[in-house]
Amino acid sequence: MAVRKLLVTLEDYSEAGRYTCEVTSNIAGPAKTSDIQAQAITISPTSHVFAIGDKQVFTCASYGHTVMSASPTVQWKKNGNLINSSENIYQTAENTFGDKLVRNLFITLQHISEAGEYSCEVPSASGSGVYLMRNMQVQVAANVSTSPAAPIVEFGVQQIFICTSYGFPIPQITWKRGKNNVTATVNIYQTLQEPTPIPNKVIRKLYITLW
């Protein structure tokens, strides 16, 4: 029994594809072969920071799929679920360039709920139910507002200020006076950050009583 190993470290995506092991012997007859498939998958860009209304195209490319996989499918997902196409989020048909399969995802961000983890999946050429997957993140730049906008604080009357922010990942709010964090005293203190019913939107309150 003879063994010969092939070690493959893909340094370029052109190196993906079909590799064949061929065996010959002194016995008459054709050579015996066995194939393996080296696959690779990429996403570009791997993340993007959106503001509401921004547009971006993401490209998923699968390399080395065509020989052993009869009908490979590049599929975009969000949080592990298939993407249902809409006017602002949709994926194109697959395009084949040699042994490279490409599918684009178009996103025009209209709601913060559309931010999150997106992934691209391609079935393995082995046909064993294994999928190759790459992830990318759609982020939303933090937006901040405070209320009331122009308060008048009267002596002896407690005033509540609310800082509201949304974004993905979820922003962290801290009240400051000048460059320093507000230190809790009897008459001035901030609450813990609180979630709101709206995903990725948080608030933090500051209480002030002038004595």
Score class of each variant (00 low, 15 high):
Pro199Lys: 12
Ile152Pro: 00
Arg103Lys: 08
Glu87Asn: 12
Val49Arg: 06
Leu206Val: 03
Ser128Thr: 13
Leu210Trp: 04
Gly167Cys: 07
Trp76Ser: 05
Gln75Ser: 04
Gln110Asp: 09
Asn95Gln: 15
Asp99Phe: 00
Asn180His: 13
Lys32Trp: 07
Glu22Ser: 15
Ser47Ile: 02
Ser25Asn: 12
Ser62Ile: 10
Arg18Gln: 10
Thr92Glu: 11
Gly167Lys: 04
Ala115Pro: 06
Ser71Gly: 06
Lys176Thr: 03
Ser14Ala: 09
Asn104Ala: 06
Pro45Thr: 03
Cys21Ser: 12
Leu10Trp: 00
Lys201Asn: 06
Ser124Val: 02
Glu194Gln: 15
Ser62His: 05
Ile188Trp: 01
Ala40Cys: 05
Gly127Ile: 01
Arg4Lys: 13
Ile107Cys: 06
Thr191Met: 12
Thr33Ile: 15
Ser44Gly: 09
Leu109Gly: 11
Trp76Leu: 05
Ser119Cys: 06
Glu94Lys: 10
Ser147Trp: 00
Thr59Ala: 02
Lys78Tyr: 01
Pro148Arg: 02
Ile107Leu: 10
Glu117His: 11
Thr66Asp: 03
Thr108Leu: 08
Ala16Gly: 04
Ile203Ala: 08
Val182Thr: 12
Arg4Thr: 10
Val23Lys: 11
Thr164Tyr: 00
Ala125Trp: 03
Leu105His: 00
Gln56Trp: 00
Ser145Gly: 12
Glu154Thr: 15
Val202Tyr: 03
Gln190Tyr: 08
Val153Gly: 06
Met68Glu: 00
Thr183Arg: 10
Arg204Asp: 04
Thr66Pro: 00
Met68Phe: 00
Val8Asp: 13
